[in-house]
């Protein structure tokens, strides 16, 4: 029977941050350590708001961080049609990245994002990351068959939302959750 790691705490995030410098200048909250975390094959959630004010949740399937610090979140165009439409209409975006083993969670926010074409590297990264995520879910939470269905997507229907994060927040459950990662 697999066991969970000790749950992460919001205080852990501050300690990690002290050891890792900004990777893309002071305006971008990403550090090298966070860049690795975002692309490590974990749970990715995308939130936006429709022009009529209704908030929209969706699961994403992969993430790439570019050399200039933009975050590319890879979604299924079919399942995330409303999300993509809202982003295309200029709505802001939030993305939460969570590691199931210890519940470490980070939320990124950007005032604007854009819908861009999928690249071959996006497809490869998504296959690698979703495969790892399914393995973890199958080890800790679900039967293998369900884990694979849960992370499943249609490769021919991938789409990408690209944004430069304005802010990052600790979202690991516990006291101090919600704090901005400023330094």
């Amino acid at each position: 029977m697999p066991t969970y790691q000790s749950p992460a705490s919001p205080q852990d995030e501050a300690r990690l941050r002290q050891r890792s410098a900004h990777a893309f200048g002071p305006e971008n909250p990403l550090t090298e350590e966070l860049v690795t975390f975002l692309q490590s094959g974990i749970s990715i959630l995308i939130g936006t708001v429709e022009p009529n004010g209704v908030p929209l949740p969706r699961l994403a399937h992969g993430c790439r961080v570019t050399d200039i610090g933009t975050v590319r979140v890879i979604l299924c165009r079919r399942a995330a049609a409303r999300t993509i439409e809202a982003i295309d209409a200029g709505q802001p975006v939030a993305a939460t990245f969570s590691r199931p083993e210890d519940h470490r969670s980070i939320q990124l926010k950007a005032r604007s994002a854009r819908v861009v074409s999928v690249e071959q590297e996006d497809v490869k990264a998504t296959a690698r990351q979703s495969g790892h995520f399914a393995d973890v879910l199958a080890e800790f939470i679900f039967a293998r068959e369900f884990a694979e269905a849960y992370v499943g997507y249609w490769p021919e229907l991938l789409g990408v939302i690209e944004f430069t994060p304005d802010q990052a927040f600790v979202q690991t459950p516990g006291p101090g959750a919600g704090a901005a990662l400023s330094e």
Binding site: L45, G47, T48, P55, P57, P92, V93, S98, K109
Partner: peptide
């Protein structure tokens, strides 16, 4: 059994997304 995904927004329209 399966964690749900919750989206909210503030008065200014900034979204928030969490499990």
């Amino acid at each position: 059994i399966v964690a749900a995904v919750l989206a909210t927004r503030d008065r200014a329209g900034t979204p928030n997304i969490s499990m």
